[in-house]
């Protein structure tokens, strides 16, 4: 029973029919090629928004990974995103070192913070974790403003150093964000088939079977959250790099909720295209609807409710007056 379920789970994400595999791969390759060539055609603001879009797509991936592998919801991933962004800024300000060092450092710090945060609720249902992430999201602005000596307070910090000297800033931001996003989505696809990935999925789908094989649920919970926080922090480092600045304005309580919105809208998918859909949704909607500012939360709320309902309700006819045949 447990083994067959595991096999079922492990097949779920892999395209089953051989004929479609090539098509799927080809379309992803075409997408990446198109994104690689885009800077030849477009420029300026579009490149800037797309770089932010890639960074946000990575942050959305980190939330989706938590949902997919851990079955947990976080509305506080903005904390780890901010951690990554401020790591890049502070390393540049204090040590004068570029993103070449601070990008991996951001991922490490994110992993550490994620571990510390997830450890206390390791034995509890995901609902407790969700409540704790709400506190995390609300504590973030206080921390950013309170530790003014390091974070620059309300004004924030600038990020000016290039990774590759001599290349235009816009192109650097664009290609580095794209490269990291593609690398992470490839790594996630590989992780999905690896022994570790399967172990984590089994701990969620069949906790008892997993426990019989020595994979405890609490270990799985903590390690998934750690990985996810590391990804979020990486995304934050890219966000800071791409926007050349970090400030508390970009990390309010709602930015964590919006990351979850992006994840839900992309159906918690872990592929490159799903991540791009989620990232585009949370980056471009506020940019292009800037005039209708107060409608943005309404729109996001509606999207969240509708997608959640459609994805989970199954056959909605059951709820029509005559359909109570349960």
């Amino acid at each position: 029973m447990a083994v067959s379920d595991l096999a079922h789970v492990s097949k779920a994400g892999v395209p089953a029919r051989a004929g479609h595999v090539d098509l799927a791969r080809l379309s992803v390759l075409a997408l990446v090629a198109a994104l690689l060539l885009l800077p030849l055609l477009a420029g300026g603001f579009l490149l800037y928004s797309l770089s932010l879009c890639f960074a946000n797509a990575l942050a959305v991936l980190s939330v989706s990974m938590l949902v997919r592998y851990g079955g947990e919801v976080s509305i506080g991933h903005s904390f780890f995103v901010a951690l990554g962004a401020y790591t890049v800024a502070i390393v540049e300000h204090r040590l004068g070192i570029s993103i070449a060092v601070s990008l991996p450092l951001a991922a490490l710090l994110g992993a550490g913070a994620g571990f510390v945060f997830a450890f206390p609720s390791r034995r509890l249902s995901g609902i407790y974790l969700a409540v704790a992430t709400m506190a995390l999201a609300l504590a973030l602005p206080e921390v950013l403003i309170g530790f003014e000596k390091f974070t620059g307070g309300f004004e924030g910090l600038y990020i000016a150093q290039d990774l590759i000297p001599g290349v235009s800033k816009a192109l650097q931001h664009y290609y580095i964000a794209l490269a990291v996003l593609v690398a992470v989505s490839l790594a996630l696809a590989h992780f999905r088939k690896s022994a570790q990935g399967l172990a984590l999925l089994m701990a969620q789908a069949q906790p008892r079977a997993a426990e019989a094989m020595g994979i405890t649920r609490s270990w799985a919970r903590v390690s998934i959250f750690t990985l996810s926080a590391a990804l979020a922090s990486l995304a934050g480092a890219l966000t800071g790099f791409a926007s050349s600045t970090v400030s508390p304005n970009s990390f309010t309580f709602f930015s964590g909720v919006f990351l979850l919105v992006g994840s839900v809208v992309s159906l918690n998918g872990l592929s490159l295209s799903a991540a791009l859909v989620g990232g585009a949704f949370i980056t471009l909607v506020p940019t292009y609807l800037a005039k209708a500012g107060d409608w943005v939360p309404v729109l996001y709320g509606v999207a969240l409710v509708v997608v959640t309902l459609v994805a989970n309700a199954g056959d909605l006819r059951r709820f029509l007056p005559r359909g109570r045949a349960r």
Partner: peptide
């Protein structure tokens, strides 16, 4: 998650 969506709508 759906209650979060409701919350966002009310906030807006």
């Amino acid at each position: 998650i759906a209650t979060l969506g409701v919350g966002l709508i009310l906030q807006g």
